[in-house]
Design a protein around this nucleic acid. Structure first.
Lengths: 215, 215, 215, 215
DNA sequence: AATGAATGAGATTTCATTCAT
DNA sequence: AATGAATGAAATCTCATTCAT
């Protein structure tokens, strides 16, 4: 019941999960040895079994521990809209990018989900419904309002939302693939993203061309 | 007999690679057992060793066998541009999407790369330089021309290329995550993609707002 | 407080031994975990080590604690004989059966001895000499007297003693094997036992037959 | 497909079971290490897993492999009765004792059943119904006939059957407890057994005494 | 007296790899 | 070309034992 002891005990699961994330990322779920996870925090493999009943359960707890705070963050920080569509876009982009670059863990969660999607489909679905769907929902609602206000060309706003998120996801994947080997200029990326969304690729006034089949 | 035999022999490596892909996807590289790969094509573990010297080499051959034809396809079918930027965009999108939905294997290659990026960085780099870089290169060249011709607002065309590719990559990831559990309406997706690229989100004539910081 | 405490302390070893017996029976010595024994009495593993220095010593103490009172009971209650052989047989049977059905623990002691006979032969021998041998001794002495008094056909009285005990042992084994799944009608059992011992299987007057080789 | 290879393969399971029996007996189920079983037949522990999927399954197979031939032997060798009750008793005793002393394995089966009765009650029941019940059945049928023919005093013949079997079981238990440390004079044992059954303990003509409550 | 977190030796189990057939 | 029995190194997992609190 000493302070030190009980504090350490309380933090152990977190420590283990953190170490597990690092090892799973580095080595992949299948090839990671529990002993390496243990060594990382200076305990022995037996200790892990005091807190997690198997490697698989540890993995599941890891997924949960990664996605739970992300979901919570979204639930706690409602998107706040203005009347200004451009300002709102900036706001959206900055929140989306922050989400990725502040959360090293988000990237790795995505990696684990992609890697193990067939083995743990329930986690994919959970994560989708917990914070991917809400994000898309929130964005498409804003776009609906934008269409109603004549700010945005009428279209399928849910699909539109995906396009706003897509480059962020894409950036995330690149980051997973290249790690630190390929630096990414995030500011340029965001600014390009913003520009394209606002104006499209075309120069204002440029004829859109005859090939365009409108739907 | 020798005809059948030799034909079988010639096809064995391919069979094995196909089976390996299925198993690696389902179970992940580390957790996949060679025996399961063998069982899939009705042979035994030992047979695999007649064609591949180890599990790791098998994995490497798999990556190569997946990316080589993709790279070749790109090399053999140069992108062909017109003067019409909208038509070229249609062309780009159709080629990119075709690439994904014709090539089930492309998706899985991406999964393997994401999963094992830290263990096999050389494969990531190889694939990048073999056909991701060329695609981006090709697109950005077209955009340069578009800028020169006054069709496109001047900007970093390499970044621009990423934005054109991003939704495709994103769609790919979704497909990896959800498999067959979530149907994707590809036509709507493409059409939305096209519209946004051509015009941006904003309605022509809408004021772009005061929040826009120009860079 | 100290009253309760010290009382608890005094009873702990007994509690532990009781719990140990239950677990050893259920799971076998080798497979029983100290933690389960501890849980049974609401303490933790460590507590056991305050009273027993190892699992093996605990087992040894258990054997001793089971057999000691049994041996004592026999030593304190000398068999008391009359001149009436039939009455003495009744007395013998009732004491033997009482011994078993009053002492749930006797049965389990036997199980432990059978299970671990090769690992702990000293316990088998101890128990044998402490109360199996004395019982047999006592019975065979009575039979010797019976032979001398012309009540019993001359024979190896030690072997005879075994036959008197055998059905009791056999009943014990059945009880170990079937637990509560198979009810045993003890009264009928005793009465049959008595009858056979007194008269044998044969009807008085029945010809014993020619197959009988006399020894 | 070579003779040697395939023969060895066919015999492996048997070899393993034999070795397992020896080790389980010596060390108890829980404390036996698969490696020791493997070593006994000159293979490595991995080999065991080619034939048995776990230690527990190995144990179960062992029980089955021990009891199956015993049950079969009983089914194939029907008890054959004559009109001579004494001759039939001799026959019964000799078959029962043969069963035990020819079958070293029978003894050990009993040990395993007693040891693990609470963990594997289904095996106890299986064995009971497969050859203990049939034996008792067969004997009691003979005794019924004996009663009908006036050879035997009327009584509960099923209980009677137990008394005939009991000393054999008892001998078996003694043998399990003392192994080779205490030699057993089997002939004397059988002969005493026979004598008691035929005539009871009492000398013919001896007054049965007044203590006898007849039922 | 009791706890329970931690250990670490050792058990079970897995599986890539080999090789005689 | 293929097999599949066997290996053995290494993984997961267990648990008797310790010891700081």
């Amino acid at each position: 019941m000493s302070g030190i002891r009980s504090k350490q005990k309380a933090e152990r699961p977190e420590q283990i999960l953190e170490a597990a994330l690092d090892e799973f990322r580095k080595t992949g779920y299948g090839a990671t040895r529990l002993e390496d996870i243990a060594k990382r925090i200076g305990v022995t493999k037996g200790t892990i079994y005091l807190y997690f009943e198997s490697k698989e359960k540890l993995f599941e707890s890891l997924i949960t521990s990664l996605s739970a705070p992300l979901a919570q963050e979204f639930q706690e920080n409602e998107w706040e809209w203005t009347d200004d569509i451009a300002a709102d876009l900036d706001y959206i982009l900055s929140r989306l990018y922050n989400f990725i670059f502040e959360h090293h863990k988000f990237r790795e969660l995505l990696r684990l989900l992609v890697s193990e999607a067939d083995r743990f489909p329930q986690f994919v679905d959970e994560n989708y419904s917990e914070f991917i769907a809400p994000i898309l929902q929130s964005l498409s609602k804003r776009f609906d309002a934008g269409i109603a206000a004549g700010q945005i060309e009428p279209t399928d706003t849910h699909e539109l939302a995906r396009f706003v998120v897509a480059p962020v996801l894409s950036l995330n994947i690149m980051s997973l693939l290249f790690g630190n080997r390929r630096a990414i200029d995030c500011d340029t990326f965001i600014s390009t993203h913003r520009k394209v969304l606002l104006r499209g690729l075309l120069k204002p006034g440029a004829k859109e061309g005859e090939g365009g089949q409108s739907e």
